[in-house]
């Protein structure tokens, strides 16, 4: 009996080892693929954050409509497709207003709202080197120097001061 039980025991042990290793491998593959996708997302997000750069071209205020026209150029290395999800704060040293997005390419978005248009290729994608015109209409008349804060959905925040 002992002569037979030893190979059976060995076979059972072998089966147990293979089963355990299969469980470990499948768990490992699942976690590695999960980690891989998270790392990929994170690296793309980090690259986008680093590659985002905006240059302030100029701005002026239309005194009759109380709207500010701000020209910005994408001087980074990535196109920005979600400018409409940005946060825009306009003000000066004493007062600030959080403006609401009114829509794409609206010439007069109304008090408290903002709009934009990408000038060279109007397609809602702020391509690399492209200039956008932001139309910012604060709910009240504010005095110069104006302070504009633009926070992109990627987390990049830019602040500019202009006199218009």
């Amino acid at each position: 009996m002992r002569g037979i039980s030893a190979p059976i025991g060995e076979a059972l042990m072998l089966l147990a080892v293979i089963t355990a290793s299969m469980i470990i491998i499948s768990a490992l593959i699942y976690n590695v693929s999960l980690m891989g996708s998270e790392i990929k997302k994170s690296s793309v997000s980090a690259a986008k954050y680093i590659g985002t750069s905006i240059s302030f071209v100029d701005a002026y205020v239309n005194t009759s409509t109380n709207c500010h026209y701000v020209y910005l150029k994408n001087v980074g290395t990535v196109p920005l497709a979600d400018l409409d999800k940005s946060t825009i704060i306009l003000g000066n040293d004493t007062i600030t207003f959080l403006l609401h997005y009114a829509g794409y390419n609206i010439s007069l978005p109304g008090p408290g709202n903002w709009s934009y248009v990408d000038i060279e290729h109007p397609n809602k994608i702020w391509e690399v080197s492209e200039t956008v015109e932001l139309v910012l209409c604060p709910p009240e008349n504010i005095t110069s120097p104006y302070k504009l804060v633009l926070a992109l959905p990627s987390g990049n925040t830019f602040t500019w001061t202009y006199s218009g």
């Binding site: 590695v32 790392i39 990929k40 980090a46 680093i50």
Partner: peptide, 28 residues
């Protein structure tokens, strides 16, 4: 085998991250 392959996978995943990050820093 599991240990070696997991180390290799871990290294390759992070090297992907760093190469993307480094190329972005280089472009900047």
């Amino acid at each position: 085998l599991i240990l070696i392959s997991s180390i290799l996978l871990f290294v390759s995943l992070w090297s992907t991250y760093f190469s993307t990050y480094i190329s972005a820093v280089k472009a900047y």
